[in-house]
């Protein structure tokens, strides 16, 4: 077995072995109640790996169909996980629930229009039509996920939201994977199955890295911010005193 083949098998098997460790971590920390979509996605990823590893690779005729169905379900589950992260993040803040929902809905509409226009006007030059449609759909979904995650990170950074560990880890892993898949699906939509092996290895390596991020953040317990006696600088005490007096006199 040469090095590339060995690496390919390792990158195919190892992430799913690590994902099998994520499930007990979530059960132990009771995270499956807060993040049921992510729990379902992880379980699905393990099941689909077992299906492809033990069954589908011996039936090449049905491989494209199986891959298409797997891609569709995975994409839907990743969107569900993304929604779950957003709801968990904004749900902790009463003032953000309406604004956050509108922002994400607006972002989704804009990115959907952009991705659809790209699919229509820049369809690629892939001669293999059956795989081409899969790659274009994958590219469209990746654009949506990338865009939403970027918007989420930008908004939460500006507002100064404190991320709880699992939500941050899940979002980071999704974001990294979505960005790399965006690039890879753009190349595949244009050039088809050429350079399949390097692209596959890149995608699998990225997924491996993302699974390790998820494993780390699901095993790490959540840390609450420490209560602090923050000292206010002296030059502010006068301003605060004035403010206090004004409030008292009302």
């Amino acid at each position: 077995m040469n090095f590339t083949r060995a690496l390919w098998y390792y990158l195919w098997i190892a992430p799913h072995a690590f994902q099998a460790l994520i499930l007990p971590a979530m059960l132990y920390h009771r995270l499956h109640r807060r993040y049921p979509a992510f729990f379902t996605y992880t379980a699905f990823a393990i099941v689909e790996f077992l299906w492809f590893f033990l069954v589908a690779r011996f039936q090449p005729a049905g491989y494209l169909r199986g891959y298409s169905i797997d891609l569709l379900v995975s994409t839907i589950l990743r969107f569900a996980v993304l929604c779950e992260v957003i709801v968990n993040l904004f749900g902790d803040y009463k003032s953000l629930r309406r604004v956050g929902k509108r922002l994400m809905a607006g972002g989704l509409a804009v990115f959907f229009v952009a991705a659809t226009l790209l699919a229509v006007f820049v369809p690629g030059q892939n001669s293999d039509h059956s795989w081409w449609s899969v790659f274009v759909m994958d590219r469209t979904a990746s654009i949506l996920q990338c865009g939403l995650l970027l918007l989420l990170f930008l908004f939460s950074r500006y507002i100064g939201l404190s991320w709880r560990s699992p939500a941050f880890g899940i979002a980071l892993g999704l974001g990294v994977f979505a960005c790399v898949e965006f690039a890879i699906s753009a190349i595949r939509a244009q050039f088809g199955s050429a350079q399949r092996i390097p692209l596959d290895l890149t995608s699998m390596l990225t997924y491996h890295f993302c699974v390790l991020i998820w494993l780390f953040y699901t095993w790490m317990p959540e840390r609450k911010p420490a209560a602090s006696a923050m000292a206010i600088p002296e030059h502010d005490l006068e301003a605060w005193n004035t403010e206090l007096q004004r409030l008292v006199q009302r």
Binding site: L161, V176, C179, A183, I187, R223, P225, S228
Partner: peptide, 30 residues
């Protein structure tokens, strides 16, 4: 262009995430 956009988005996500990393040790704001 799409690949460049994807790389730029990845760099931006990682940079934003770096600033948002939840503190692993308990911190005192003061």
């Amino acid at each position: 262009l799409l690949v460049l956009m994807a790389c730029l988005t990845l760099a931006l996500v990682l940079w934003l995430a770096k600033g948002s990393v939840p503190k692993l040790l308990s911190t005192n704001i003061s």
